[in-house]
Design a protein around this nucleic acid. Sequence first.
DNA 1: CATGAATGAGCCTTCATTCAT
DNA 2: CATGAATGAAGGCTCATTCAT
Lengths: 194, 194, 194, 194
Amino acid sequence: MTAVAQRANNRVEAVLDAAAEHFATKGFKETTTRDIAAAADMLPGSIYYHFATKDDLLLAVYEEGVRRIEDAVETAVSDIEAPWEQLEAVMRAHLETILSPTAYARVLIRVLPDSAPKIAGQLKSLRDSYERRVAAVVDRLPLRPEADRNLLRLFIMGAANHTQVWYRPGPHTPATIAAELVRMFRGSLEAEAA
Amino acid sequence: MTAVAQRANNRVEAVLDAAAEHFATKGFKETTTRDIAAAADMLPGSIYYHFATKDDLLLAVYEEGVRRIEDAVETAVSDIEAPWEQLEAVMRAHLETILSPTAYARVLIRVLPDSAPKIAGQLKSLRDSYERRVAAVVDRLPLRPEADRNLLRLFIMGAANHTQVWYRPGPHTPATIAAELVRMFRGSLEAEAA
Amino acid sequence: MTAVAQRANNRVEAVLDAAAEHFATKGFKETTTRDIAAAADMLPGSIYYHFATKDDLLLAVYEEGVRRIEDAVETAVSDIEAPWEQLEAVMRAHLETILSPTAYARVLIRVLPDSAPKIAGQLKSLRDSYERRVAAVVDRLPLRPEADRNLLRLFIMGAANHTQVWYRPGPHTPATIAAELVRMFRGSLEAEAA
Amino acid sequence: MTAVAQRANNRVEAVLDAAAEHFATKGFKETTTRDIAAAADMLPGSIYYHFATKDDLLLAVYEEGVRRIEDAVETAVSDIEAPWEQLEAVMRAHLETILSPTAYARVLIRVLPDSAPKIAGQLKSLRDSYERRVAAVVDRLPLRPEADRNLLRLFIMGAANHTQVWYRPGPHTPATIAAELVRMFRGSLEAEAA
DNA sequence: CATGAATGAGCCTTCATTCAT
DNA sequence: CATGAATGAAGGCTCATTCAT
């Protein structure tokens, strides 16, 4: 990569970082393109050299967010075989990602797809893509016959994402929260060992 | 109440209903005062006869929303003594309220307090007020010693509120969801009977 | 009409007048909505209370322009029976209208339909409507058999509209120009009297 | 001319061709410098290596347009002596040029001088230069004493230029149109042979 | 009580132009 | 010669809010 291309990438990334940060913190509508430009140390019009519309910017942030959280999850899962331990690893990676100061994945939770009606469909697809990855892990869990696997997934995701509202650094860490979360469900739902 | 005052109230309520509906469905920023006026069958300026600002409208909706959900919970809890059954009743009332087409309480979940920075503090207080009511019910649960009561509450609320994103009328109802939700946690956390 | 409605109409007309004046003089793209607002003694946003878009404004001006020039032509033609005299009357009315300081009809000639791609079709329809009215008059002319009626109409309209580029008040008036114009074509094209 | 200078000329010509094409088709304001750059297979900034401003580009196109149409007219007129036949040859050359897909001369008709206020004077001069050449031909016509030579010229030019609006390839060609046009005026205006 | 025209700050976006490389 | 990232003024449009009636 040439020095020029390097710098170019840096600027795009700077814009993207700034956008992610603002979207995650204040919301999509609440963020102005001027906010983003200022945070990226650019002038208002300059953003549009790199992104055609504000919607496109959100889409790019979403894509990067999904890439990051899927990567994190994939890595976490890679060398774990036991289903419940796998779920815990996933939740730990999930929480670490959506609670990290790096904003991309936080946007996935904070900004609802219909904040940008024109691209709502694409945003939903991105969310779904990730959700399916998590579902695959849930699907491997050995559950008591009467358990509703679908509800389990929805409850767990709801509980996990809600941390974004209340979590502050303190005694609990993403890791301990993930452990507790999985433990609570596992206790009632795990199939009896044969 | 005089007939005139009655009519006045009707207009205020019409505005409030319209605002709640739109806030719950599209979000605060995404809703224009014109949207609300049109839905209340008024002209744009007329809203300001009843409410000084758009923020005030949101505050009023929040207040009404808290009132309603607290009422629902209070009623649900009133003649149940057993702690876990009480929690289930609370969750049932909670879900029925935030999933009901009547929009007030839905706004509590959908619209984050910092959508309106100037009144964010007041909005948070209102949310907290309700959250404390639920906490009181959680506090009565007999839990195993190692269980984290605080996390339990946050997980449950997260899981419950998340229904707003995925719930569609179908085989599950707020009642069955509440039952499942409480059952899952109870199984792992309930203290052994003496 | 109430006094209020009267004032309202006045404001709409003021906007329309200002828009017509600017469109006719500087062109559509070259005119800013701020120009129009200033000329109508309003603030930039105020125009949008009356017209949804700048395109709509152009459409309204076009409509009024067609209405005026068609009225003028209709009146001119009404009590004349002789075909060539009728054509002269039409051309006189046409020239008086497109050269008058009142700008509406001038816009029809000056602003091409594809200045506003989204409404180009509607603008063309409006032009065509008028063009057909003129064609009806041309169709009544008794011409030598070898004459091309269609070309005649196109030449006459071209010559007439071009006055907008060169005409300045002076010895010639719309009336004398119309007379000359028709005379030039009539001499070569009129069918021999039986 | 060196090979380098040759290539340089090629680039200038490419820009000019692209500009002419776009100005003629969409208008001056409606064309962006990016449109032109793209059509010339360059990057946005590169145009400015060859032309200082967008206005300069228009000026250059105008100049080339005048050069071409004057050349065409000069050639057409060169070996014809009879005045009316000369006029027909001029009109044929004129129409062929302003209707040809090669865009330079089309711009002269399509883009009004005050599209670019700063150079409007120069653009008008260029137009006038050509107009005078045509006037010289009209001046040679033997006309009846009462005919207005000036109006004749203006009518003819108006009718001819208007073809740009309505002409589509079909039964008529520039040549047949020119013939008809001159015939129509000649019939009424030609002085009686002595 | 309500109106509805008007406001004006501010938003997203465009685009001719610049300039370091 | 050409690049391409960046500029910054300006444009069309939105919308919470005001106010005379």
